[in-house]
Amino acid sequence: MKNERKTFRICSIGGITLMALMLFCALLLGVVLGSTKVSLAELWRGLFWKEEAHTASIILYYLRLPRVFAALLAGVGLSVSGVLLQSVTGNELAAPNIIGVNSGAGFCCILLLTFFPKISAALPFAAALGAFGTTLLIVSVAAKLNAFRGTVILCGIAFTSVLNAGISLLSLLDGDVLTAYNAFSVGGLSGVKFEQLWLPAAIIFTCLILSLVLSRRIHLLCLGDALAASLGVRVRALRLCCLLCASASAAAVVSFAGLLGFVGLVVPHIARRLAGQRTSHVLITSAFVGAILVILADLLGRVLLAPTEIPVGVIMALIGAPFFFILLLQRRDQGAAM
């Protein structure tokens, strides 16, 4: 009953309005705060008068706005990816890295840096290609072995090990490559531009909408494959579709933010605690919570040691790991599934 009351609250119009308001506040803070503060008056002038030569306008249009938009996209994309992966694998510890997003992206990046160091601008595309390609490979092998649910995780572990070995081998050959790869693997949003974000935004929101359309079917997977199939769900096709959505969404984030950890793992757990188990509610709540969390983590990284920046990936790991540990402890105390 307690859970139901929570579900009602967070998924009512009031709940969604509250989350939207919190997101707006996070966006506002993300725009005005930083190593250089922008007052609300300057923000207003900068937004609506767009004085090209004005410092506040330059900061807003070239630094802050693309950055908070990127943080919002990263939060939504990784959270949705996490919810889908945890639903289709039935594993609460599933995150984008289990379907090869991190290892695939990392391997392609290091390949590019090793053999074509002059076109390092193509790094985001290589990362997205690697992430998506590895997922396709893992999903195809798991589908061929005909034991999808558990096998996809085992295939992910096997492919990740091979790709990580490849990353280690290539980085041993060239120290410069290792340095460049390290910066990418931590995950950060500094220097991101609007032009980089339109395509990932289209991919992420398409995946979110598709997931919401399929959410009732996805929810049926909580009954197990046999029951879901007997209720008219094409389980394998649905699972494949969700995995591709999860991969595309995470790969889109990797293309501009690098390998941002913990969001896809932690946020779905927070959302389930707030919204209950219904997949549509978890997806909507995750999108809001993920966006707010990444925007605030990025803001923290900018102001904590200003003017030095801490990459958002480091902040997420610092916040995410203890938070996840607390969630696990609470779950143990309650003796129930989250």
Partner: peptide, 21 residues
């Protein structure tokens, strides 16, 4: 699948206990 599900309902031997009402 949906047409089949409208005609035959199945209760498998092992069913999970999801946290729903």
């Amino acid at each position: 699948p949906r047409a089949r599900a409208q005609r035959i309902a199945v209760l498998p031997q092992n069913v999970p206990t999801p946290n729903i009402t």
